[in-house]
Design a protein around this nucleic acid. Structure first.
Lengths: 331, 331
DNA sequence: CTGTTAGCGCTTTCAT
DNA sequence: ATGAAAGCGCTAACAG
């Protein structure tokens, strides 16, 4: 493998000059620049990134920590992050936190030990305090899907409360009055916020929230199944159910279908996230759009702007949108 | 940030000794080892990976190139790769190839330029020749979802032809005789192989393959929609359709449902891949299981064994399995 | 505009 | 078992 030294020899210039043309330093005459470029091409020269990183203290890598890699949720986000960073010749290192505090912390340590220039974190279990402290260290972080007032500038998040409100409000507008709710884990911020929105919509029309009509799931399909079974076991009437994410409505609907029910004729459903499959299942899901890929992109742009000093506009908070399809009808 | 030098000072030993304990070199007395460990702990020492990589010419990173990050397919694979490598303190750098030859090549160059110790590639468009040549370079590669005879040792793949055969054979066994097929892109190896299997099953019972009953999709939901519309427009009779992946059956079924058809009563479907959603859509999909996460894991183990010299068993070829659910019934 | 030179923090012979 | 010292390939003052 050719080194910068070989290039400088071939081009008949010094190491520094070669380094300058690599780093697009302007103080190089067009002529020498061409000589150097030619030498590089001839040698098939490829700079050693480790030597660069060691000398410059910049690795051009950003670590991305997500809760999980499988599932429909993080793929689109990772795709946007990779694309935005890659376009600027930076690379992304991935790590998975499994929604567990110890593993999440271990993962940020891991990423830090790998010398990332910055971290993009989608973490559930790590405490606010830890993150605030982390944000004060020399490695910049950006938080996706989480709002912490003290470090709001580096938070990219969705207005989940509003989304929860919209879902239930839609059902209310369709005439439903007995609305069940299958929630996400009560320790996840977004799950709490979505449920808050649900309650606000209910309160707005004077309906009191009935805990018996609320089941706490874990965002996976199976807990939609469990939730539905629980709700049926309550012997309460309800004409609609909102689920805190689309995967759970998928599970929930499957048990209804197995019982021979017709959806949405017998029961209306509203989901959350608008995952790709929401348009293809039957009935097509009425759901709240979660612009997760846009947030991923924005996180990358945030870094490009604040760390790598590009001139870019960045927005922190995203608004959910109701996507009306066929799983909820007027009562 | 403390350096190895600080540690050596505090412990009262030389740089070399500190380096030895980091690298688990045996030639260190237990006593000095403890002194060094204590010094490290006290300083919160974290080795600089770039200096390590520069000096040792080993980065402990492996590049993973996939066609896409969104979609249900690659998540499970990436998850397994990350977990297996991470457990051994290696990290994974991701890149996306978008099933385009130029972008795929650009991605491997990118990964190589980032100093990866090895590459895990799931590439569609790159030529066999390029890959054979690449495998002869100093950076090991392992191919997922692809078989190239000349470098079969580093290929981890599924017997796609057999899977295609199984899907159609199942329908045949259920009494179907007029079976349509929605294929993947004719330039993708796995799509070709699956179709081959379909043809073999047909031939086995003396049915001649009718090109008019075959539509070439692109593995995405929308092409399942297109495929179904095409098939209906042919005015041919068929009682079942096999799709080369589950996403396309999802799209295909949605158009049937819109036409007021009952699935599987009016038309049977068999898919391929057994993506997570296959169990939750209605009807639950009868499909061919694709152990993509196992293949991902195996690719990681292959590297652990061949590159990082761990003592492990690795298998190259995986067998598909028919998963019988509710989307196909006896005619 | 170009060259010289001193590191960046670690690994790895080679001595002892 | 431990230490001294020579790099690994590059960047970034500094000098000219």
């Amino acid at each position: 493998m050719a080194t910068i030294y070989d290039v400088s020899q071939l081009a008949g210039v010094s190491l520094a000059t070669v380094s300058r043309v690599m780093n697009k330093n302007t103080n190089v005459s067009e002529k020498t620049k061409q000589k150097v470029l030619a030498a590089m091409a001839e040698l098939g020269y490829r700079p050693n990134t480790f030597a660069q990183s060691l000398a410059s203290n910049c690795s051009n890598s950003v670590g991305v920590l997500v809760s999980q890699l499988d599932g429909p949720y993080y793929g689109p986000m990772m795709a946007e992050i990779e694309a935005a960073l890659r376009a600027d010749n930076r690379h992304v290192i991935i790590a998975v936190g499994h929604s567990d505090a110890a593993q999440e912390i271990d993962s940020v340590e891991f990423l830090l030990s790998k010398g990332c220039d910055a971290l993009i974190l989608d973490v559930e279990a790590i405490s606010d305090d830890y993150l605030i402290k982390l944000s004060q260290s020399s490695t910049p972080i950006v938080l996706i899907n989480r709002y912490i007032a003290e470090i709001s500038d580096c938070c990219i998040y969705l207005n989940n409360e509003l989304g929860g409100y919209m879902a239930t409000r839609h059902l209310l507008d369709l005439g439903h009055r007995d609305i069940a709710y299958i929630s996400g884990p009560s320790k996840k911020h977004d799950a709490i916020e979505r449920l808050e929105g649900h309650k606000r919509a209910l309160a707005e029309v004077g309906i009191s929230y009935d805990p018996a009509l609320c089941f706490e799931g874990d965002y996976k399909e199976d807990s939609g199944v469990d939730g539905m079974n629980y709700l049926f076991s309550q012997n309460k009437t309800f004409t609609a159910v909102v689920c805190a994410n689309d995967q759970m409505v998928s599970g929930a609907i499957s048990v209804c279908l197995e019982r021979g029910m017709q959806i949405p004729q017998d029961l209306s459903f509203v989901g959350y996230d608008n995952i790709p499959f929401a348009r293809y299942v039957s009935p097509k899901l009425t759901t709240v759009n979660n612009p997760i890929h846009e947030m991923g992109k924005m996180a990358a742009l945030w870094l490009l702007k604040n760390l790598y000093k590009q001139d870019l506009e960045v927005e922190n908070v995203f608004e959910p949108e109701l996507v009306v399809r066929n799983s909820a009808i007027r009562i």
